[in-house]
Amino acid sequence: MFHPLRVSEVERLTDDAVAVTFAVPPELREAFRHTPGQHIALRRTAQGEEIRRTYSISAPAGADPVLRVGIRLVEGGEFSTYALKELAVGDTVDVMEPTGRFVLEPRAGHFAAVVGGSGITPVLSIAATLLAREPAARFCLIRSDRTVASTMFLEEVADLKDRYPDRFQLVTVVSREEQQAGLPSGRLDQERLTGLLPALLPVAEVDGWFLCGPLGLVVGADRALRGLGVPRGRIHQEIFHVDDGVAGTAATAAFATAAARAPAHSTLTATLDGRSGNWPVQEGESLLETVLRSRSDAPYACKGGVCGTCRAFLVSGEVRMDRNFALEPEETDAGYVLACQSHPATAEVELDFDR
């Protein structure tokens, strides 16, 4: 559900990134109380077209929620351009209630994250909340950025290092400039991480790994960890950017295969907020698009298979997804799909958005 919220602060983080804070009125505090690591969707209408984008909450979780997100400028990005060049204190933006499963409920243990660029945003909330609430917890943050000047939330991360010197370990890498101290510059790929991680911390003793950032970084870190013997259940991922040139090729091939095997006529039954509907699926459209033709309240944000907002349970029938960068293997094994990427593979398909 979306709520109109007033912008209370716009802070310039770098030349191409801002932190935006929204004022949460008392009557909406419960609705916007988030688990560290969750995200919100922002909505605006420009030239008659609705634009939605998903941004992770950077602020620690608490009883009195602070709704602060980091927004980095994306080339050609309609919402990020608006946020950096036009959005001002006092403006009102439609904000969806927090969602997402890239989370960590504070508990004792040793945790670590490998992040790239704006991937720091949810991990900052995770680390800050964990260290504040759980004295028996430790956190190692390995972050990669292009340059020091492009690094988001520098002060907030430095504050964690000063506040928890014995429990917070920080390792920084920049890919496009040399540093006077720290690790040599260069990208954090699978090969480099395979050698680096065991030198930094006892990999096998880490209770949870959080990987967030561009697709290449997350995939490389996941493969490095799996190669080092880390069980899949301890690795949590969230993609912040997908190279459409690479992913688009795979998606096109997947769609062609699905289209070739799709039934000539399909019907979708979907349950949303306790109400069910039944609609014919038009040629080429995703199941989310089918629902949206009659139910504008269907949940979605990116429509790119990245945020997971449109996750639904497949009650019956079969579907084929073009791409999936949001659901964990355990979720797909349990029967969940991304409606924005799903196309019918049987004449009858039923989805439940409420599970």
Rank of each mutant, 00 (worst) to 15 (best):
A254E: 15
G216T: 09
Y82D: 07
D354H: 08
I71Q: 10
C140S: 14
V10M: 13
T147W: 04
S276R: 14
N324T: 01
T249P: 08
V148K: 04
E75F: 01
F255P: 10
A253F: 10
L154G: 04
L225Y: 01
G220M: 04
T249S: 13
P280N: 11
Y336A: 01
L193G: 00
A41F: 01
R68W: 06
A88G: 13
L327M: 11
A137E: 01
A260H: 10
Y300L: 03
L196Q: 08
A61F: 02
D15N: 11
V7Y: 13
G308Q: 06
E178H: 01
P98M: 07
A128F: 05
P106N: 11
R320D: 05
A345K: 15
S8P: 09
Q47S: 13
L211C: 08
A298C: 00
A149P: 12
V157Y: 04
E328T: 07
E86T: 14
E289I: 03
R323H: 10
A127G: 04
V89H: 03
P202W: 03
L84N: 08
A326F: 05
A326C: 10
V174R: 15
A128C: 06
C307H: 06
F32N: 00
V114S: 01
L272Y: 05
D354N: 04
E30T: 14
D297E: 14
V103I: 14
R101G: 05
A112Q: 10
R355I: 14
L228W: 03
M152C: 14
E86G: 06
A181L: 09
F240S: 01
G213C: 08
T147R: 11
F168Q: 00
M96C: 07
R44D: 00
L104H: 11
H3M: 13
L215D: 15
N324S: 04
S294V: 13
P184A: 09
P231Y: 04
G208S: 12
R293K: 15
A247H: 08
R12D: 11
P184Y: 10
Q38Y: 01
G304D: 07
L215K: 12
G233D: 09
L272P: 03
S342A: 14
R143C: 12
A254S: 12
V246Q: 15
I71M: 08
E134Q: 13
Y164D: 02
S342D: 06
L28V: 06
G335A: 05
C212F: 08
R261I: 00
E11F: 09
V281E: 07
T81M: 04
A61L: 04
S316M: 11
